[in-house]
Amino acid sequence: MPGELLAIRDATKYFGGLEAVSGVTLQVADGEVLGLIGPNGAGKSTLFNLITGVYAPDRGEVRFKNRKISGCKPHQVVAAGIARTFQNIRLFANMTALENVMIGRHVRTRSELAEALLRTPGFKQEEKAIQDYARSVLDLVGLLKAGNDLVKNLAYGDQRRIEIARALATEPSLLLLDEPTAGMNPTESAEVMGLMGVIKRKGIAIIVIEHQMDVVMNISDRVAVLDYGKKICEGSPFEVQKDPKVIEAYLGA
């Protein structure tokens, strides 16, 4: 497939006897937004964990930019260009918002112990570059003014955006968002949707797990539906909405 960014082939993951993800095959093109939906426990987050190297698939493989990434360590996957957020926010609670985002720069910078202890010119330069980049990302998500606040003191919606900013700071070509609007009021949801639009315009592909259908249908180029670990449907938002299998899965017939 031309412009193919991510290719999941036959990915399968067992937990005990349970098949959490079962033979899922899925592609994402450069700059595309893929909505990933399905009832609770359908295996969406597990699929994210398979892509990001938290789990290795028991069968099948994940390729990214034509390189096999399944079996890689999570930090290697990040280095390859995939970043993510979490269903339950996982920020570094006792660090400032800016520092959280600066952590995202870790993978794109390289100063080590010796440079840090000697304060070499290269170290200072890189340190400044890290801060500048982090500030620009923080500005992008609209939270520059909160930069010096500890993230644990920020409002819930702001924390979600800091998490997105941290992921963006790693300069991903693919961003995985795990329920970015969960627990948000409509205004906040709309803001996050706007942010996703901005990210998309930067040419970053997105896979988004979402329960709010209007969000999914609005933002996605394509939608894939998981149920009981299997992909039951894939297509344009319009096609998916009409698919009887999807309706059945959601209504639990």
Binding site: V78, A79, A83, R90, L91, I103, V107, R166, T170
Partner: peptide
Amino acid sequence: LAAELSGI
């Protein structure tokens, strides 16, 4: 885990 998944 979040640190690892942020590229550390």
